[in-house]
Design a protein around this nucleic acid. Structure first.
Length: 363
DNA sequence: AATACGGGGTT
DNA sequence: AACCCAGTATT
């Protein structure tokens, strides 16, 4: 490993002690911290991937209530798991979690493997999550590196390398391994993340109330707010959709999306891809209705931003004549209240909300 | 090494 | 509007 500035052994010891002391006095009271069972920790770690504690908390409560043990999760239908996950995003997490629950139940007898390599082999578990679960639930010494830890360590050592680069991440992981407490690896990991979430924040770090600011090189240099450096993200591509809500005899057509890729396994309404120019012309849109369908109303432009797509869309409310039933496995004509039982992705939940408003106004 | 993969909150 | 978040899987 190439040379980088590092705390001396005695500084490292004092850093650890200060951090752990601060953590025990200031940690948030979170439900998965109440016991040392691996399952609550596992559930929380999957939910919290790329997700803030505040956003994930209600989902955690719903899941732990409905699936108190991993065997219950394994026994559930994937559709029910996705329904509970609805609105949280990154739906592959739910699919992988369901698959992993099956493996843990069938192959590991309902226990979590304490070996790092075996943990890493489970679907949905990468280096961060494996280290988090093994350290918190089994007191194994594996340092976690997440967004918080990256920020804390780059500031601590005043590392100005691009945090997106793999070699930078590798150095951070190495430093985390040097810093971690051998006696309390779980608490240390949580403490680093808690510090990043509550004190060593991205924009305006609260150095004045930081328990380890005296060990922080960036703070020393007055650079804390400028570190870490992150190269610019690639711009999102723009997309334009017509979201068709088709109504027939008080029923609405709902469709299940692809099995992989964006929003895998989730339900929504039929979509027609258009150009940005076409989306601006309601008159043209009205004529785009499939044969024999009457356009009842067109929504104003709406926007939904995905991780890599900037979507602009309008909802088109269509009315059609009664016909023979043409339901199949992935196309269902449902009463409004039946839609509540299906996992529907956010952009189309917003479309549905618009429809509800229109129906209410029509009364 | 780069890209795909959601949704909400902050500045 | 840009950036961030208890990241992982695929290519």
């Amino acid at each position: 490993m190439s040379a980088h500035p590092m705390l001396s052994p005695s500084q490292t010891t004092r850093f650890r002690r200060k951090l752990l002391e601060w953590f025990r006095a200031n940690k948030r009271d979170l439900p998965w911290r109440k016991q040392k069972d691996w399952y609550p920790v596992y559930l929380a770690e999957i939910i919290l991937q790329q997700t803030t504690v505040e956003q994930g908390l209600p989902y955690y409560r719903a899941f732990i209530r409905r699936f108190p043990h991993v065997s219950a999760l394994a026994a559930a239908d994937l559709q029910e798991v996705l329904k509970l996950w609805q609105g949280l995003g990154y739906y592959a997490r739910a699919r992988n979690m369901h698959k992993a629950a099956g493996i843990l139940t069938d192959r590991y007898g309902g226990c979590f493997p304490q070996d790092y390599k075996q943990a890493l082999a489970l679907p949905g578990i990468g280096p961060y999550t494996a280290a988090a679960i093994l350290s918190q639930a089994f007191n194994r010494v594996h340092a976690v590196v997440d967004g918080n830890v990256s920020r804390v360590i780059t500031r601590l050592l005043a590392l100005e390398d691009d945090i997106r680069r793999a070699d930078t991440q590798k150095r951070i992981q190495h430093v985390a391994g040097l810093l971690i407490s051998r006696k309390y690896p779980g608490d240390f990991n949580e403490a680093m993340m808690e510090l990043g979430a509550l004190v060593c924040t991205p924009r305006a770090p609260l150095c004045a109330s930081c328990p380890v600011s005296r060990y922080c090189r960036a703070r020393d240099l007055g650079k804390a707010a400028q570190i870490p450096y992150k190269s610019p993200a690639v711009p999102k591509r723009r997309q334009y959709h017509l979201v068709m809500i088709r109504e027939r005899e008080n029923r609405i057509l709902l469709r299940q999306g692809n099995d992989h890729g964006l929003l895998a396994g989730m339900w929504g309404f039929p979509v027609r891809v258009v150009s940005g120019k076409e989306l601006e012309q309601p008159g043209k849109i009205e004529q785009m209705a499939p044969d024999g369908l009457h356009t009842k109303k067109i929504s104003p432009p709406m926007r939904h931003v995905y991780s890599h797509i900037d979507l602009k869309y309008r909802v088109v409310w269509l009315e059609e004549r009664p016909e023979n039933r043409d339901d199949d496995k992935k196309n269902l004509w449902l009463a409004r209240h039946e839609l509540e039982h299906y996992p529907i992705h956010k952009a189309h939940l917003k479309a549905l909300h618009w429809l509800d408003q229109q129906m209410k106004e029509a009364d």
